[in-house]
Simulated assay, not measured.
Amino acid sequence: RPEFALYALRRAQAIRAIEKEHGTRVITMIHRQEKRSLFGFAVPQHIDLEDAQTVIAAIKETPDDIPIDFIIHTPGGLVLAAMQIARAVEAHPAKVTVYVPVYAMSGGTLIALAADEIILGEFSVLGPIDPQILGFPAASIVRARDAKPVAEVCDFTLVLADVSEKAVAQVKEGAVELLTPRLEQAKAETIAEKLAGGHWTHDYALTAGEASALGLPVKVGMPLQLMEF
Protein backbone atom coordinates (compact mmCIF):
# COMPACT_ATOMS: atom_id res chain seq x y z
CA ARG A 1 0.00 0.00 0.00
CA PRO A 2 1.33 3.48 -0.90
CA GLU A 3 1.13 4.90 2.62
CA PHE A 4 3.15 1.98 4.00
CA ALA A 5 5.77 2.37 1.27
CA LEU A 6 6.12 6.06 2.13
CA TYR A 7 6.38 5.23 5.82
CA ALA A 8 9.10 2.63 5.12
CA LEU A 9 11.04 5.16 3.05
CA ARG A 10 10.87 7.78 5.80
CA ARG A 11 12.01 5.20 8.35
CA ALA A 12 14.97 4.16 6.18
CA GLN A 13 16.01 7.79 5.78
CA ALA A 14 15.75 8.32 9.54
CA ILE A 15 17.87 5.23 10.21
CA ARG A 16 20.61 6.45 7.88
CA ALA A 17 20.58 9.86 9.57
CA ILE A 18 20.85 8.33 13.05
CA GLU A 19 23.69 6.03 12.01
CA LYS A 20 25.60 8.98 10.59
CA GLU A 21 24.98 11.16 13.65
CA HIS A 22 25.73 8.50 16.29
CA GLY A 23 28.37 6.50 14.44
CA THR A 24 26.36 3.35 15.14
CA ARG A 25 24.53 0.52 13.43
CA VAL A 26 20.77 0.91 13.84
CA ILE A 27 18.68 -2.25 14.22
CA THR A 28 14.92 -2.15 14.63
CA MET A 29 12.31 -4.58 15.93
CA ILE A 30 8.97 -2.89 15.53
CA HIS A 31 5.65 -4.67 15.88
CA ARG A 32 2.56 -2.82 14.73
CA GLN A 33 -0.86 -4.19 13.86
CA GLU A 34 -0.99 -2.31 10.58
CA LYS A 35 2.08 -4.07 9.21
CA ARG A 36 0.16 -7.19 8.22
CA SER A 37 -3.49 -7.93 7.70
CA LEU A 38 -5.66 -10.95 7.01
CA PHE A 39 -8.94 -10.47 5.14
CA GLY A 40 -8.91 -6.83 6.14
CA PHE A 41 -8.34 -7.47 9.85
CA ALA A 42 -5.18 -6.38 11.62
CA VAL A 43 -2.91 -9.24 12.68
CA PRO A 44 -1.01 -8.45 15.90
CA GLN A 45 2.73 -9.02 15.71
CA HIS A 46 4.91 -10.41 18.47
CA ILE A 47 8.51 -11.48 18.98
CA ASP A 48 8.91 -14.77 17.14
CA LEU A 49 11.65 -16.99 15.76
CA GLU A 50 11.71 -15.07 12.50
CA ASP A 51 12.55 -11.92 14.48
CA ALA A 52 15.31 -13.83 16.26
CA GLN A 53 16.82 -14.96 12.98
CA THR A 54 16.68 -11.48 11.45
CA VAL A 55 17.96 -9.54 14.47
CA ILE A 56 20.73 -12.00 15.32
CA ALA A 57 21.95 -11.87 11.72
CA ALA A 58 22.00 -8.06 11.84
CA ILE A 59 23.96 -8.08 15.11
CA LYS A 60 26.49 -10.62 13.84
CA GLU A 61 26.98 -8.62 10.64
CA THR A 62 27.89 -5.54 12.70
CA PRO A 63 31.67 -5.14 13.18
CA ASP A 64 32.82 -5.72 16.76
CA ASP A 65 33.95 -2.12 17.19
CA ILE A 66 30.70 -0.53 15.98
CA PRO A 67 28.12 0.34 18.67
CA ILE A 68 24.51 -0.69 18.08
CA ASP A 69 21.38 1.40 18.55
CA PHE A 70 18.54 -1.12 18.90
CA ILE A 71 15.06 0.40 18.55
CA ILE A 72 12.35 -1.77 20.10
CA HIS A 73 8.58 -1.36 19.92
CA THR A 74 6.84 -4.57 20.90
CA PRO A 75 4.18 -6.10 23.17
CA GLY A 76 6.46 -9.11 23.75
CA GLY A 77 6.28 -12.64 22.41
CA LEU A 78 8.10 -15.97 22.62
CA VAL A 79 10.53 -16.26 25.53
CA LEU A 80 12.73 -18.52 23.40
CA ALA A 81 13.08 -15.91 20.66
CA ALA A 82 13.52 -13.04 23.13
CA MET A 83 16.32 -14.88 24.95
CA GLN A 84 18.08 -15.67 21.68
CA ILE A 85 18.02 -12.00 20.71
CA ALA A 86 19.06 -10.90 24.21
CA ARG A 87 22.07 -13.22 24.20
CA ALA A 88 23.14 -11.84 20.84
CA VAL A 89 22.85 -8.30 22.24
CA GLU A 90 24.90 -9.32 25.27
CA ALA A 91 27.59 -10.90 23.10
CA HIS A 92 28.23 -7.81 20.96
CA PRO A 93 31.61 -6.38 22.08
CA ALA A 94 30.77 -2.72 21.49
CA LYS A 95 28.13 -0.74 23.37
CA VAL A 96 24.50 -1.62 22.71
CA THR A 97 21.86 0.98 23.48
CA VAL A 98 18.20 -0.02 23.46
CA TYR A 99 15.76 2.76 22.56
CA VAL A 100 12.11 2.37 23.58
CA PRO A 101 10.07 5.15 21.95
CA VAL A 102 6.74 3.91 23.36
CA TYR A 103 6.81 0.45 24.90
CA ALA A 104 8.84 -2.75 25.09
CA MET A 105 6.78 -5.13 27.16
CA SER A 106 7.46 -8.67 28.37
CA GLY A 107 10.00 -10.18 25.95
CA GLY A 108 10.93 -6.68 24.84
CA THR A 109 11.97 -5.87 28.41
CA LEU A 110 13.86 -9.16 28.61
CA ILE A 111 15.90 -8.09 25.58
CA ALA A 112 16.48 -4.64 27.08
CA LEU A 113 18.05 -6.26 30.17
CA ALA A 114 21.00 -7.28 27.97
CA ALA A 115 21.74 -3.72 26.84
CA ASP A 116 24.44 -1.46 28.21
CA GLU A 117 21.96 1.41 28.31
CA ILE A 118 18.18 1.78 27.94
CA ILE A 119 16.83 5.07 26.62
CA LEU A 120 13.17 5.80 27.30
CA GLY A 121 10.92 8.66 26.35
CA GLU A 122 9.11 10.67 29.00
CA PHE A 123 6.11 8.35 28.77
CA SER A 124 7.79 5.17 27.49
CA VAL A 125 7.34 1.99 29.49
CA LEU A 126 8.86 -1.42 30.06
CA GLY A 127 6.96 -4.30 31.65
CA PRO A 128 7.13 -7.45 33.76
CA ILE A 129 8.73 -10.54 32.22
CA ASP A 130 6.71 -13.14 34.14
CA PRO A 131 5.86 -16.09 31.85
CA GLN A 132 2.28 -16.84 30.83
CA ILE A 133 0.89 -20.37 30.61
CA LEU A 134 -2.29 -20.85 28.55
CA GLY A 135 -2.98 -17.15 28.97
CA PHE A 136 -2.59 -17.17 32.76
CA PRO A 137 0.34 -15.81 34.80
CA ALA A 138 2.56 -18.73 35.74
CA ALA A 139 3.17 -17.34 39.23
CA SER A 140 -0.58 -17.10 39.84
CA ILE A 141 -1.10 -20.72 38.77
CA VAL A 142 1.47 -21.81 41.34
CA ARG A 143 -0.19 -19.70 44.03
CA ALA A 144 -3.60 -21.16 43.18
CA ARG A 145 -2.23 -24.68 43.60
CA ASP A 146 -0.57 -23.82 46.90
CA ALA A 147 -3.74 -22.22 48.28
CA LYS A 148 -5.40 -25.64 48.70
CA PRO A 149 -4.42 -29.04 50.02
CA VAL A 150 -2.97 -31.10 47.17
CA ALA A 151 -5.82 -33.61 47.47
CA GLU A 152 -8.28 -30.86 46.52
CA VAL A 153 -6.38 -29.74 43.42
CA CYS A 154 -7.27 -31.34 40.09
CA ASP A 155 -4.59 -33.12 38.07
CA PHE A 156 -4.74 -30.54 35.27
CA THR A 157 -3.95 -27.71 37.69
CA LEU A 158 -1.11 -29.73 39.20
CA VAL A 159 0.39 -30.23 35.76
CA LEU A 160 0.00 -26.53 34.92
CA ALA A 161 1.59 -25.58 38.23
CA ASP A 162 4.55 -27.87 37.59
CA VAL A 163 5.11 -26.32 34.16
CA SER A 164 4.60 -22.85 35.64
CA GLU A 165 7.26 -23.34 38.31
CA LYS A 166 9.73 -24.39 35.65
CA ALA A 167 8.81 -21.44 33.42
CA VAL A 168 9.24 -18.88 36.21
CA ALA A 169 12.57 -20.40 37.26
CA GLN A 170 13.85 -20.41 33.68
CA VAL A 171 12.94 -16.77 33.05
CA LYS A 172 14.53 -15.69 36.33
CA GLU A 173 17.71 -17.58 35.45
CA GLY A 174 17.73 -15.99 32.01
CA ALA A 175 17.31 -12.51 33.45
CA VAL A 176 20.14 -13.05 35.93
CA GLU A 177 22.35 -14.31 33.11
CA LEU A 178 21.71 -11.12 31.14
CA LEU A 179 22.18 -8.78 34.10
CA THR A 180 25.26 -10.20 35.82
CA PRO A 181 27.84 -8.83 33.39
CA ARG A 182 26.93 -5.36 34.71
CA LEU A 183 25.49 -6.08 38.15
CA GLU A 184 26.44 -8.15 41.18
CA GLN A 185 24.74 -11.54 41.45
CA ALA A 186 22.55 -10.58 44.41
CA LYS A 187 21.31 -7.40 42.73
CA ALA A 188 20.60 -9.26 39.49
CA GLU A 189 18.61 -11.89 41.38
CA THR A 190 16.56 -9.20 43.13
CA ILE A 191 15.67 -7.55 39.82
CA ALA A 192 14.86 -10.91 38.22
CA GLU A 193 12.55 -11.82 41.09
CA LYS A 194 10.75 -8.49 40.89
CA LEU A 195 10.25 -8.65 37.13
CA ALA A 196 9.49 -12.37 36.75
CA GLY A 197 7.95 -13.29 40.10
CA GLY A 198 4.38 -12.22 39.38
CA HIS A 199 4.39 -9.10 41.56
CA TRP A 200 2.42 -7.10 38.96
CA THR A 201 -0.10 -7.89 36.26
CA HIS A 202 1.60 -8.78 33.00
CA ASP A 203 0.52 -5.52 31.35
CA TYR A 204 1.83 -3.32 34.17
CA ALA A 205 3.48 -0.19 32.78
CA LEU A 206 6.93 0.06 34.34
CA THR A 207 8.01 3.69 34.16
CA ALA A 208 11.52 5.01 33.74
CA GLY A 209 11.60 6.01 37.39
CA GLU A 210 10.57 2.55 38.56
CA ALA A 211 13.01 0.83 36.22
CA SER A 212 15.83 3.06 37.43
CA ALA A 213 14.89 2.41 41.06
CA LEU A 214 15.17 -1.32 40.37
CA GLY A 215 18.74 -0.77 39.21
CA LEU A 216 18.37 -0.87 35.43
CA PRO A 217 20.63 1.44 33.34
CA VAL A 218 17.78 3.71 32.26
CA LYS A 219 17.96 7.25 30.96
CA VAL A 220 15.13 9.51 29.81
CA GLY A 221 15.71 11.48 26.63
CA MET A 222 14.27 10.03 23.45
CA PRO A 223 15.53 11.72 20.26
CA LEU A 224 12.55 13.25 18.49
CA GLN A 225 13.20 11.42 15.22
CA LEU A 226 12.83 8.06 16.98
CA MET A 227 9.32 8.86 18.13
CA GLU A 228 8.13 8.33 14.55
CA PHE A 229 9.25 4.69 14.56
Rank of each mutant, 00 (worst) to 15 (best):
Q33G: 15
A114S: 03
A186D: 08
M29V: 02
D69A: 11
A213I: 13
I119A: 02
K35G: 14
F39L: 12
E173M: 09
A161Q: 03
A17K: 13
M105R: 15
A112F: 07
R143M: 11
G127K: 14
W200R: 04
T54Q: 09
G135D: 05
A114W: 01
E21S: 13
L9E: 15
A115W: 02
K20T: 10
R1I: 14
K148R: 11
G221V: 05
F229D: 03
V218P: 02
A169Y: 11
A94E: 02
A57T: 08
I111C: 03
V43Y: 10
D162N: 10
V100T: 06
E34T: 09
A94P: 04
E173D: 10
P128I: 00
Q132F: 08
R10M: 04
T74W: 05
I15E: 09
Q33T: 14
V43H: 09
T62R: 01
G174F: 00
L195W: 03
R87M: 05
R145Y: 06
V89L: 01
T97S: 03
L9P: 15
V163S: 09
I191N: 04
M105S: 13
V102Y: 13
A91F: 00
G215N: 03
S164K: 01
E152T: 09
L80S: 15
P181W: 02
L49E: 13
A208R: 09
K60G: 08
Q185E: 12
H22M: 15
I118A: 01
I68H: 07
V79R: 07
A5H: 12
M105F: 13
I133F: 02
A104V: 04
K95S: 00
V102W: 14
K35C: 12
R182I: 04
D155A: 14
K172R: 07
I72M: 06
E61I: 03
S212E: 09
Q45M: 08
V43A: 10
H31C: 06
I47H: 00
I129G: 00
R87Y: 04
G215A: 01
E228C: 02
L80C: 13
V125Y: 13
G174Y: 03
